[in-house]
Design a protein around this nucleic acid. Structure first.
Lengths: 202, 202
DNA sequence: GCCAACCGAATGAACGTTCAATTGGGAGGG
DNA sequence: CCCTCCCAATTGAACGTTCATTCGGTTGGC
């Protein structure tokens, strides 16, 4: 019990194969069929596991979903931590962050879809408040740096962070759903528009 | 049967009281409890109607949800049509549209929440494709006007429309969920940032 | 008296969860 | 090296509940 996931940073314990399989199956099934559309029995079959086994690792379906969300969020946080490097000029860093997050969401559409379903569902109302949300704390700090270095307009970081992340998420969702497509040039234009909006013109 | 809703534009038939009550109850319950959390029996009780009555108006729960989405979307479309007035200078029109849509979502948080749950659920995959989506068609046309009049950068209207709407939705959702608050001055700053990004500097 | 609107108990399927039973690997004594 | 005991891991049939949907019957306006 209490096993760690993947080759996690601080802990190289062997992986909980079954637990990870349950996570992945849940994410894929939720992507296609939604929360109500994925019974535990189906998660079990898809993960190659008996129904009862899931309850060895998770107290309930709700707990499984909640833990999966935390797992997903940590992956996103890792991307932000990797791209917001203080050694690189802020402007480059901004474009890296936008591109890095976008690429991550593109390569993990299961996760993106699960994420969006979760935050718009009643599950998310049981989440910790905003101030303790590491993802937004990181983003806020990044944009504060931009203001401090005189690269950005003097606007609340929460505005800058929210606008930036919403643009990434929306474009990624549009592409993932197949409703709209954006080619490389258009993606660069989007980043540039955003930058033109938030940067101090000089 | 086949009754119209509200004091609808082209049709002034008497309202289907029960049908409207079912719509409103569904929206409120889905906001609080999500799709799976709102059984038909609860919708019935909340609407002051017998369970069987719902099936007099709707074939199934899925159909109820789908029709409710169409109903909701028409209300949003009405706001866009009202604010995108060709007689007003484009820039003013842009700020009107942003503010109008934002205010609408603020005043109709049930609808906003329902909307977001719907588009991220498997229900929405059965929706008509993008080109037939009146909402986006209207938005695209509006931004095309801006380009034609030399007010906006020469970028695909789909980019401008997507960025603008995503900013409105995200800010409204943040406020509605209570996770972040934006005061009047901040809302103006957001609109201005967006405009600075997409407008042709002169 | 006719028909649409409406009711709500009944139905049957689906689902989350439980639990008695089984497996398998490792610790320890001989 | 082998046997034994133990317990965590695992199984899947069974349980009880919940829910969408049905349907036979009632109402009320025309």
């Amino acid at each position: 019990m209490n096993v760690q996931l993947g080759g996690s940073s601080s802990n190289m314990e062997p992986i909980a194969d079954k637990k990870k399989a349950i996570f992945i199956s849940t994410m894929e099934l939720v992507r296609d069929k939604g929360f109500h559309g994925t019974p535990m029995s189906m998660v079990a079959k898809h993960a190659g596991v008996a129904a009862g086994t899931i309850y060895h690792y998770f107290e309930s379906k709700e707990q499984l979903i909640t833990e999966l969300f935390d797992y997903a969020q940590q992956q996103v946080i890792a991307v932000v931590e990797q791209e917001t490097c203080a050694a690189i000029p802020f402007k480059d860093c901004f474009f890296n962050l936008w591109g890095g997050l976008y690429t991550f969401y593109q390569n993990n559409q299961n996760l993106l879809r699960f994420f969006e379903q979760f935050v718009n569902s009643p599950y998310s109302s049981t989440r910790p408040p905003f101030e303790e949300d590491k993802f937004y704390t990181l983003l806020f700090a990044f944009f504060e740096r931009g203001i401090r270095e005189g690269e950005l307009k003097e606007v609340s970081p929460k505005i800058l962070a929210t606008l930036t992340h919403s643009s990434i998420l929306t474009i990624a969702k549009m592409t993932a759903s197949g409703r709209l497509h954006f080619d490389k040039k258009e993606l660069q234009q989007i980043q540039q528009l955003l930058w033109d909006g938030i940067a101090l013109g000089r």
